[in-house]
Nucleic acid binder design. Structure first.
Length: 553
RNA sequence: GGCCUGUUGGAGAAGUGGCUUAACUCAUAUCCCUUUCAAGGAUACAUUCAUGGGUUCGAAUCCCGUACAGGUCACCA
């Protein structure tokens, strides 16, 4: 007669600790009433996904708002999919968005008393719990090959039974310990499965923090908890880690809802109190009229790095994501004239059940607001950082003359009704390139967009007079009055109204003559206030440009 | 296919039986302001809450059916 203890010892001779030892090593946290312990637990399989940023932001905020703990755990149990270096990328990008863990995994050394925070370093912990489970008869070695499992599935399909390794289909669940020992000693490969006592015909209820009560069928499948490579599956690692790390609220994607009964089943078998669950909706996109999750392959905005490359401030994305998470956030920003997430009374209960469609327009709207609200120094600093990484032309101009670029960024920024030109830093250079003489030459070479209705002589004659008579040391209205007079001399109405009342009497309106000047000085017919632009260019460069254009006509 | 979740305007949504002639924001349109543009101001935009039935004096809100959409059923997380 082989006992469970003997079987457990044969399977895991290297494990000497007990679950009680672990309980002592990872004691409950001394935290104030209501404080939540949350976590973000990604797999190092690539770069940070926008949906992951969304989930991690919610986790982090939930802990912060309750004066709890937010930690970072690396779920690297799928060694085949692990991408080298992506853990560091994840941490760096999260940090860029201000989502910094109180404790957790770090390549330079974990922080916190509940580690290790990298699952591949926790193998002994999982095995300790599994050993206990085997002794209790709630886990067993399974010797099925992939082919065996395939055969079982085919058999189930044939008779339209539910697929899965459960009940009568769980071939090895009722093997005798003698048989098990014999196979192990014969060198047959094995995995460990959980021995479920659940009944598929019964329901299990749990309360989701976001969705309220959810009722699901009990789990009755004997899921694999330890793979043949000695590492646990997600299901088991979640239960063990979140118990010993004393997580109080699990924030994870909604795709985990259907497997929650498995987790609850294991919590019950281990006699542990399950945490609260908050299943976060995915961020979606419309594709051929159907909603689907943002896909890294098809949608550039699925990768957080896209926003960085485009030069969206970190705050913009965060603000947009928060407006999805708590729809009252938008009203709050307007009422408080502020985008500070730390001051916003975030509530995880208000997170919507259904995933929102990613809305680029709204993202841009928020980003414009965020950038305009940003103090000049901070904006400039961010623009510099963006340019040096992603925008060579702009970077070159900053290197040449940082103060000049800063002055350009400041156009209309301090006004009561500030300009909102940029949704992202990539918008800057194309809109301001005429400020640089070499770029102005290129614009000139491409041809100036003068009004084709006005003849060259008229344009030239007007520009010649403007160059001679235009004042540089007056205020804007005095300057513009002079322009009006010059325009009037050449047949343009002094006011738009005047022109509208009698269009046949004029060549055009003030708008038309102002446009000539604008085109001549900046090379485009759309720009911020011309008077300010001239002030930044200075008298000499402005006159030189005018002469250059006159000569070319 | 089984099970789960969901369905309020182009988008995010508020709303949980009478205070809603469905809030607020983005987008769109028109007008105003204006030397252009970015803005800013004003107005418009769901007679109706997927759909059919029921409960009620009264329903977007409660109940049942149907449709549609998303998720899930791995030694992946």
């Amino acid at each position: 007669m082989v006992t469970n203890e003997q079987l457990a010892e044969l399977l895991f001779p290297e494990i000497h600790e007990t679950v009680e030892d672990l309980e002592k090593r990872y004691p409950p946290r001394a935290l104030p009433e209501g404080a939540q312990v949350t976590r973000f637990a990604p797999s190092p399989t690539g770069f940070l996904h926008t949906g992951s940023l969304f989930t991690s932001m919610i986790s982090c905020m939930s802990a912060k708002k309750t004066k709890g703990v937010y930690f970072f755990r690396l779920e690297d149990t799928d060694t085949k999919r692990t991408v080298e270096g992506s853990a560091q990328d994840l941490i760096d990008q999260l940090a860029y968005f201000g989502i910094e863990a109180d404790e957790g995994y770090n390549p330079k050394g974990d922080i916190g008393a509940y580690g290790p925070y990298k699952q591949s370093e926790r193998a002994d912990i999982y095995k300790t719990v599994i050993k206990d489970l085997i002794i209790k008869g709630r886990a067993y070695p399974d010797f099925c090959t992939p082919e065996d499992l395939d055969a079982i599935r085919k058999q189930q399909e044939a008779i339209k039974a539910l697929p899965g390794y459960y009940g009568e289909y769980a071939r090895d669940r009722n093997l005798s310990n003698e048989e098990r020992v014999a196979r192990i000693q014969a060198g047959t490969p094995w995995v460990i499965r959980f021995y479920s006592n659940g009944n598929h015909d019964r329901k299990i209820k749990f309360t989701d923090v976001i969705r309220g009560e959810i009722e699901l069928q009990e789990n009755d499948t004997d899921v694999v908890i330890l793979k043949s490579d000695g590492l646990p599956t997600y299901h088991f690692a979640h239960v063990v880690d979140d118990h010993f790390m004393r997580t109080t609220m699990i924030t994870r994607g909604e795709e985990w809802i259907p497997s929650t009964p498995i987790h609850l089943d294991m919590f019950r078998a281990l006699g542990w109190k399950p945490p609260k669950y908050a299943h976060i909706p995915a961020i979606l996109k419309l594709d051929n009229g159907n909603k689907r999750k943002l896909s890294k392959r098809k949608d550039p905005e699925a990768a957080v790095s896209y926003f960085l490359e485009q030069g969206y401030p970190a705050q913009s994305l965060l603000v947009y994501l928060m407006s999805i998470a708590n729809s009252n956030f938008e009203e709050w920003t307007i009422a408080n004239k502020c985008f500070d997430l730390d001051r916003f009374p975030f509530s995880i209960k208000k997170v919507a059940n259904e995933g929102a469609l990613f809305d680029q327009e709204k993202m841009n709207y928020f980003s414009r607001e965020v950038i305009t609200a940003m103090p000049l120094d901070i904006e400039f600093q961010q623009v510099c950082a963006y340019a040096s990484a992603h925008d060579a032309k702009l970077h070159g101009k900053i290197e040449e003359n940082p103060e000049y670029v800063k002055t350009i960024l400041n156009i209309g920024k301090q006004d009561k009704n500030p300009r909102k030109d940029y949704a992202k830093y990539a918008d800057i250079f194309p809109l301001v390139r005429y400020f640089f003489d070499d770029e102005f030459e290129d614009i000139l070479a491409a041809g100036l967009p003068f009004n084709p209705k006005l003849g060259k002589d008229i344009v030239k004659a007007f520009l010649v007079d403007a160059k001679e008579e235009m004042p540089f040391d007056t205020d804007e209205s005095a300057w513009f009055n002079v322009i009006k007079e010059i325009g009037s001399k050449h047949g343009f109405a002094r006011a738009n109204k005047e022109y509208k009342e009698n269009p046949d009497a004029f060549l055009g309106s003030v708008s038309d003559c102002a446009e000539l000047l604008r085109v001549a000085i900046v090379g485009t017919n759309q720009s911020p206030n011309l008077h300010q632009i001239m002030a930044i260019l200075g008298k000499d460069r402005t006159l030189a440009r005018l002469q250059r254009v006159i000569d070319s006509l």
